[in-house]
Amino acid sequence: MSIAKQVILTRIRDALARSPQITYESCPREYRRASALDVRSRIELFEDRLRDYGSRVYHCSSDQIADSIALAMRNAGKTALVIPDGFPRTWLPDECTFTLDNGLSYQALDGAEGVLTGCAAAIAETGTIVLRHSGADGRRALTLLPDYHLCVVRQSQIVASVPEGIQAATEFATSPITTISGPSATSDIEMTRVKGVHGPRTLDVIITEP
């Protein structure tokens, strides 16, 4: 054990010598941990929050995903996007170009028009997308360097509240996780909100059944 560690732990023990124990179980948990919102209301709330962030939101059934992706790309003025290895090929529209991220350099990602991914979960109340950085989510740099992010969210992935979102994430707690709530932003200059500092400046979302 390092000397510093020994000293610090001893100091902590001394500092707490006369303090009674407080158990984890005795911590009150009276806040809302689940919500009564049905699927329809969750989708509506999620969409409302995303629009608040300036995102374009598309809805489609499971057999129209490719069409929706093509539409979203057209509206955003994009012709080619990078996709992670685990992105379902059947979702890709024929008329657009897609580049597979098989370890592209940062420079290549930086120069890409944008990126198309799935997600691991979504939180309606805060308009949050949760990425676990495997499969259709891609590695961390993929959704960071390109200036445009198009994300496909399945209806069944949308939970109502933050506690439910964290609950869902406990299943992959030790994977790298990024939560995204709207595009990159800053309010550091006179508290004026500016969209897009370092992360993607535009985030669009396709919500698909089921």
């Binding site: 929050r49 949050t128 964290i166 996780i177 309010s187």
Partner: peptide, 28 residues
Amino acid sequence: FEDLEVFLQLLPRSATGERMNPYNSIWT
């Protein structure tokens, strides 16, 4: 890990007045 459900609600609303801040990076 589940304690994040408390702090990730309190911090962004208190700090910047957002329901959630744009990015959280969580890694192990």
